[in-house]
Simulated scan of single mutants.
Amino acid sequence: MSTIILNSNSVSDITIIPNLFIDQFMPSANGSYVKVYLYLLRCINCPTDIEISISSIADRLDDTEKDIIRALCYWEKINLISLVRGSDNDIISITINDINNLNFKDADPIQETIQATVAAMTKESNEKMEPALTDRSETIPGRIFEKPTYSEAQIKQLTDTDEVKWLLNIIEIYLDRLIKPMDLQLILYLYESVGFSAELIMYLYEYCVSKNKKNPSYIEAVALSWAEEGIDTVEKAEAATALYNSNYNAVNKAFGLNRAPGQIEKQFINKWLNKYGFSIDIIVEACNRTILQTQKPDFKYADKILENWHKKGVKELSQISHLDEEHQKIAAIKANNKPAALNTKPSPGNRFNAFPQRTYTDEDYSSMEQRLLHKQ
């Protein structure tokens, strides 16, 4: 995606988080949305100019690009930021609105208006959600899901079924603790709005807990990633996670690693698989060449190899052999066209070769013979 211009009408050399945001906006917002807003505040108050993009924000916050876009749309909807989109609907500019200069008259109306805004958003989300209480829609790949905040009445209605009660009991066993309100909101969101079955939600929690990840934000990110990829059954999820793990294992084996990849290393692997679209065979080939060249598992070196192949349009492993042949031909041509260096160094076996050598004629030899005879 293109680089985004970030603007603000309230700039300082430190990052200031208004109390109004903490008191009124933060409690009702998704945790990942809050991270995006705080990161924007940090970027805009950087003393030097900074260029950001959706991908750079996603990398920084360890989130998906679609999650970042979802968060920006959320803050735009409640008027904390303003977005400008290009002809292809990509975000090209973000303006952080001054929360203290919104069009409110005094302190009491500020509270009332903000509460009304949040209430209106909640009502809108609930209206979209309520028909789904009896007829849940199917998961649609690529869809951006609205996340409602469930009221006490809705929570009571949704949790008053044997299936949901059973689901909550199983998840408590996975988490090894009682379910918290944030957990409950997420589970109902996945069950009702996203359209996950109880079995798929259980597998989701089983998978995340097996990776030692119990944070609701992480679990939600994995779930939405599955939904956007059209994963709507346990079988599909198992196949996707098996492929995910097999790719990591293949890289580990090529690099001779006996551990799980670190966070930065995972970012490299995901970049090679998702951004470059390389098959695992091509990635393993780059890892093998890295080991031969550097004698160590250097992810940055492998990234340079794969970046070069990506620029040259490599899609299949066979194309790499053609690139190697072309490289060898070019190297051979350069070697043949290189002029031979003159051997001006003396032979190491004769130290007198360092001096200029004379050439003697027959007359020279005759003259020297005469001189020797006269001396006698």
Rank of each mutant, 00 (worst) to 15 (best):
T113W: 14
Y150G: 03
D67K: 09
T95R: 10
L83Y: 09
R60W: 06
W75Q: 02
D98F: 13
T95I: 08
S82N: 06
E130T: 05
I94A: 05
I69G: 04
V84C: 04
I99R: 04
I140E: 14
N97H: 03
P148M: 01
Y74M: 02
I54R: 00
A58I: 11
M129T: 12
D135F: 15
D63P: 01
Q115L: 10
K77Y: 04
K77N: 10
T139K: 06
D63H: 04
K77C: 02
T134W: 13
S137W: 12
I69N: 07
E146L: 07
Y150R: 01
F145N: 13
S87N: 09
T134R: 15
V118P: 01
I140M: 12
L61N: 14
N126F: 04
Q115I: 02
R85V: 06
A132R: 14
A153V: 03
L61I: 02
K147C: 11
I114F: 03
N89L: 08
Q115D: 13
D98W: 14
D62E: 09
L61A: 14
T95A: 02
D59W: 02
P148L: 02
A107P: 00
A120H: 10
I140W: 07
K147D: 08
A132L: 11
N103C: 11
T122E: 08
E65S: 09
V118M: 14
E127H: 04
I91A: 08
D67T: 14
I69H: 13
E65H: 06
V84D: 08
S151T: 13
I69D: 10
D108F: 12
F104K: 01
D90I: 08
L72Q: 07
A153S: 11
E76M: 01
E124F: 05
S56A: 10
R143Q: 15
L72N: 06
A119F: 03
N97F: 00
T64S: 15
E76K: 08
I140R: 13
I78K: 08
A71L: 09
S125K: 05
Y150K: 03
K77E: 07
I140N: 08
S125N: 08
K147W: 02
K66W: 00
K128I: 13
P131Q: 06
A132S: 03
A132W: 04
